[in-house]
Design a protein around this nucleic acid. Structure first.
Lengths: 244, 244
DNA sequence: GGGTACGGCTTACAACGTAAACCCGTAGCC
DNA sequence: GGCTACGGGTTTACGTTGTAAGCCGTACCC
C-alpha cells in the first residue's frame, strides 16, 4: 500500500537491506538517491519518507544532510549540471573556436537531458538564466568564462549577451520538448479521436507523424539542424555587430 | 497568520464579502479565480482552501465544478490558450501566407505569456506537444489546421511536422526564459559577488548586462529577431524538401 | 403539502514537509 | 574503569495539504 508508486529499485542500488545502512549516509548519497528516484518514479513521486525508505533510513535522517526538500531539488539540478561539466568531451577537449565549443556543450546538455528525462524539467523550473552555465553556489565565474570566451572571439559585449540568451532559450525549449515526448512512457500521448473516442489514427495523415516517441535518430537530426541554424545566426549577428 | 501569502486581492474581483456569494459559482469563475490567484500570488501559493477563500466559499465547494486540482490547472492552461486564440489579431485577421500567420501567432502567445508570467510556466509543465496548438479537450483539429495550412502552402508532411516542432520549442524556450526574468520581482536575481557576498557589480563588465529585467523593448527586439531567423530557416527547410 | 435536486458546508482522513525532543553507540578524556 | 560529548539516527508531533463522504438549507415541481 505504501508501495504503489511505479516501483523504486530500492535494492538495485548496490546493497541488501541490512548492510545498506552500513554505508554511511552523506549529502552526496542523498542527492544521488534523489536523482535515481526521480528517474525511476518521476518527480511527483519523490517524497522525503520514500527517499528515506530507499536509503534504508527514516525521513528525518535526511535533514542532517540537506536543509529542506527545496534545497535538495536544487542540489539535484546542480548535480545534473555537474554531470554535464564532468563530461570531458564537453569541456576538456581543446577548443576549436566558439562554434565548436557551443556545439559540444549543447550536445553535452542534451546527453544528460536524455539520460534523465524525468528530472530535466526540474532544471527549467529553477531560477532564471541558464543553470548549466551557473556555477555551483551562485557566483558567476562560469558565465563569465562563457561570455569572456565569446568576447575574446570577436563578439561585442552586447552581442555576447544576446548570444548567451538565444543559446540558452534554444536549449531549454528544444530539450524540454524532446524530453517530454521521450519521457511519456505511459500516458495520454495517444490522442483520442474526436467523435469515437477511440485511439485510432487521426483523419489527417500529417498529424499521425506527430505521434510516437519519434526515433532517436530523427530527433537527433532535428536537434543538430536547429543547433547549426542557431550557430549560423549567432555568427551573422556577430558580424553585424562588428560592422558597427 | 493564514494571511501571510503575498496578498490576494480578494475584494478586487468584483464584489464585497457578503454579496460575493450571491453571484453563483461556476466552473468558469473558479478557473478565472485560479488564474487571478496565480498571477497575484504565484503558483506555489495556490491552495484549494485559499482559492475558496478568495471566492468567499469553502474549499470543498470548488469540487462541484472541477474534479481535482490537477484538472483545475489543466483548465487554467486551457484558459490561457483560449486567450491566445480569442485575440482576433492572431486568428481572425486575413492570413497573408504562413510566415505572417506564424508570426502573428507567436506574438499572440508572447503577449499572454507576458500578461501572466507566473502562470505561463504551467503551460510548459503540461503534457507534451505545444498546448497552444491543442484544442480544448484533447482532439487535434487545431494542430491539423496548423499542419494542413503548412502543407497547403507547399510544405511536405515531414517538413510541416518538423516546422511545427521547431516553432513550438522556440516559443517554449524563449518565452520561458523571458517570463522567468520578467517574473522575478523580488528574489535572488541579484547575483552575489564571489568573495564578499555583496550584491555589488560583477568584476566582468559583460556579465553586468545579464542583470536586471532587461527593458521590454530590448527583449521584444530579441524575440523579433529570433523569430525572424526561425521563419527564415523554416523557409529554407521547406524549399530543400521541395527540391527532393 | 411532499419530494427531489442542487449547492455549499462540515467533518474526517491520509499523506506531506519538517520542528523538536530523544536515544544510543562510539570516542576522547580523566 | 567511569564520565562526558556528540554525531547520526529515530520517535513523536504539528500544521497544511488534497479530497472522500455525508449533511443540510433552499428552490423548485408535482
Amino acid at each position: 500500500m505504501s508501495e504503489d508508486y511505479p516501483d523504486a529499485d530500492r535494492a538495485a542500488v548496490d546493497d541488501e537491506p541490512p548492510p545498506s545502512s552500513r554505508v554511511p549516509l552523506s549529502r552526496e548519497r542523498v542527492v544521488d538517491a534523489a536523482l535515481e528516484f526521480i528517474d525511476a518514479n518521476g518527480l511527483p513521486g519523490l517524497t522525503m519518507r520514500r527517499l528515506g525508505e530507499q536509503l534504508g533510513v527514516e525521513a528525518m535522517a535526511l535533514y542532517r544532510y540537506i536543509p529542506s526538500k527545496e534545497e535538495l531539488l536544487d542540489a539535484v539540478v546542480e548535480s545534473l549540471v555537474a554531470q554535464v561539466r564532468a563530461d570531458d568531451v564537453v569541456l576538456d577537449a581543446p577548443r576549436d573556436g566558439w562554434q565548436d565549443f557551443l556545439q559540444r556543450l549543447a550536445h553535452g546538455v542534451r546527453r544528460t537531458a536524455l539520460t534523465h528525462p524525468k528530472a530535466f524539467p526540474l532544471v527549467a523550473s529553477r531560477p532564471p538564466e541558464a543553470p548549466w552555465l551557473r556555477p555551483p553556489l551562485r557566483s558567476l565565474d562560469w558565465v563569465e568564462t562563457f561570455l569572456a570566451g565569446l568576447v575574446e572571439e570577436g563578439f561585442t559585449d552586447e552581442a555576447a549577451v544576446e548570444a548567451y540568451r538565444a543559446y540558452t532559450s534554444f536549449l531549454l525549449g528544444h530539450l524540454l520538448l524532446e524530453v517530454a515526448v521521450h519521457g511519456a512512457d505511459l500516458g495520454p500521448l495517444d490522442v483520442l479521436d474526436d467523435e469515437t473516442g477511440e485511439p485510432g489514427a487521426s483523419r489527417h495523415p500529417t498529424v499521425s507523424r506527430l505521434r510516437g516517441p519519434l526515433s532517436e535518430d530523427r530527433s537527433a537530426v532535428e536537434f543538430e539542424e536547429a543547433l547549426e541554424a542557431l550557430l549560423d545566426r549567432l555568427t551573422i549577428t556577430r558580424n553585424e555587430h562588428l560592422a558597427d
